[in-house]
Design a protein around this nucleic acid. Structure first.
Length: 516
RNA sequence: GGCCCGUUCGUCUAGGGGUUAGGACAGCAGAUUUUCAUUCUGUAAACAGGGGUUCGAUUCCCCUACGGGCUACCA
């Protein structure tokens, strides 16, 4: 017997931007598929016409691409043999399965209107109870089980709206074998008669995902924990459709929780706590509200993915830095933690910092070029935009930033002469007697035949010695004179990088302003 | 309320009947760095509580507490 080819899917509904929790679900699906040489499919579950949000679908596709977790089949990634991958386009097909369940006595037509259902729920609520459409109540309601055949026919003939509901049996134990949680047992009595086909002819998630998973030969359904309570209904549907032996293995992932307090991570938390909850920026087409994404905040996709992978999973070793390929190789459901994970923005930054440090300075230099050019309005042929200059600047700045875009602010003085000089340092260290020294140093530096750190260092020391000054008295001032700031990148490296001419100009300018 | 899932340092987690309960982030301290950052070293910090089972439980079982999810013609 040959093993079935592993096929998994990520099946979001296009009701808004993809949340980082959703990206993690996609990631785990992807990792599992790749690990076993299987397929990863993107299917859009747009069965709720009322919640459709323009742009959400493109957002999902773009987000997966940015993360590098590309489906090898599905919407936006090339059709496989099971197209279409948008459920609304598969609409006509679902009805037959719902009807099949009616014929076999496992589902029925129900004519109760949404308003009537609402009223029943409210009424139950006022009695501190919960209304449930199930074996205990269905015979008192308006459906093909309670009504006579003639009544049902008449209503159908009159074009009365109806839904198809699953007829859930009483007194059965339904066992879920979850890959992460093990065996979970539910009593069928607490499962309600879920709507399978809505009055607009669209299937609900419950029917649609099962039919599609079956037709698309999905072997594992990896999804959020919020689906665990409806899993018994899903098992019943598979059983009644005669597909139980082909039912995908279930794996319910733990949820992502708010960094502070309680509850699951939501869109609001990002705004409130100042970190993104979305992979990419998103502008809500209805409210105009903007939400920021990891990409635009300057995160590397590799860092984002690495961080996400560790929110609920671990390799069982102490290694924390994993490329996507390594994650694929090491991933397994056994190492998925069962409890929800509070998201820690600090750790996310740490991952990014790590990836930045391991990126070649030449690459970093190339990355920041246009940003630097625009920020400081530098002419294209200026040496500060040369690969060599940018590489050295990145090298100096690398250990002091977490994001590439911070380089232009943290190291602004490498690209632009200062306008102001740190007053605290000047007040503390400057003495009029130092002026001749700095003028002497300026001349000595200008006269250096080779402007390199070793010579610069030597020149500073010897000039200081000749003025009877100790390094502690002049070094920080020199830094302020050159960069305007009391702290920053390696002083000698900075001086060498800025170059002989620039240094001389900056010293002239600073000495004309300081201590006047 | 009902049903289900869960609970190890502040956070992410490893571990698992006998361990000095390990790592990472964040914190603190020290060293290096003329500064800041880096780097290095060190340090503090956890098995929710109560009952069992057992020679022994943080680990297995039960209860409680707490957290979370679900309870729609949403997914």
């Amino acid at each position: 017997m040959t093993q079935k080819r592993i096929r998994v899917r990520f099946a979001p509904s296009p009701t808004g931007p993809l949340h980082m929790g959703g990206v993690r679900t996609a990631l785990y699906n992807y990792l599992f598929a790749k690990k076993h040489g299987g397929d990863f499919i993107l299917r859009i579950e747009d069965t709720d016409q009322g919640r459709f949000v323009p742009g959400a679908e493109d957002y999902i596709i773009e987000a997966l691409k940015w993360c590098g977790i590309e489906p090898n089949e599905g919407l936006g990634f090339g059709d496989g043999p099971y197209a279409p991958y948008r459920q609304s386009e598969r609409k006509p097909m679902f009805r037959q399965y719902a009807e099949q369940l009616v014929s076999s006595g496992h589902a029925y037509y129900a004519f109760d209107t949404p308003e009537e259902m609402d009223a029943l729920r409210k009424q139950a609520e006022s009695n501190k109870q919960t209304f449930s459409y199930d074996a205990r109540t269905r015979m008192q309601l308006q459906n093909s089980l309670a009504l006579s055949e003639a009544e049902v026919k008449q209503r159908m003939d009159n074009g009365m709206a109806y839904v198809i509901r699953l007829k859930v049996p009483q007194g059965e134990s339904i066992i879920i074998n979850d890959l992460i949680r093990g065996e979970v047992v539910f009593q069928s009595d607490i499962v309600d008669d879920k709507v399978l086909l809505k009055s607009d002819g669209m299937p609900t998630y419950h029917l649609a995902h099962i039919v599609d998973d079956y037709l698309m030969k999905i072997t594992h359904a990896v999804r959020g924990e919020e689906w665990l309570p409806s899993a018994p209904a899903h098992v019943l549907i598979y059983r009644y459709l005669g597909w139980e032996s082909d039912m995908p293995q279930l794996a319910h992932l733990p949820l992502l929780l708010k960094p502070d307090g309680n509850g699951k991570l939501s869109k609001r938390d990002g705004d409130r706590l100042g970190f993104p909850v979305f992979p990419l920026d998103w502008n809500d087409p209805f409210t105009g509200e903007k939400s920021s994404g990891y990409r635009e905040r300057g995160y590397y996709p590799e860092a984002f993915v690495n961080m996400l992978a560790f929110l609920g999973w671990n390799p069982g070793t102490e290694q924390e830095i994993f490329s996507l390929e390594e994650l694929c190789a090491h991933f397994s459901f056994e190492h998925i933690h069962k409890a929800g994970a509070k998201f820690d923005p600090e750790k996310a930054k740490w991952f990014n910092e790590h990836y930045l440090r391991t990126t070649e300075s030449s690459e970093l230099g190339a990355h920041i070029k246009s940003d630097v050019q625009q920020t400081f309005n530098i002419a294209e042929d200026n040496r500060r935009l040369s690969a060599d200059y940018l590489t050295k600047a990145a090298e100096l700045l690398k250990p002091r930033v977490q994001f590439e875009h911070e380089m232009k602010t943290t190291g602004a003085y490498l690209f632009q002469a200062p306008d102001t000089y740190d007053e605290t340092v000047v007040a503390k260290k400057w003495k009029p007697e130092l002026r001749p020294f700095f003028e002497g140093l300026q001349a000595a530096l200008a006269a250096l035949p080779a402007f390199e750190t070793a010579h610069i260092d030597e020149t500073i020391k010897s000039t200081a010695a000749s003025f009877n000054l100790k390094p502690g008295e002049i070094m920080q001032l020199l830094r302020v004179i050159v960069s305007g700031q009391g702290g920053g990148v390696d002083l000698l490296g900075m001086i060498e990088l800025l170059g002989q001419t620039e240094i001389s100009e900056r010293m002239t300018r600073a000495l004309s302003r300081i201590g006047q």
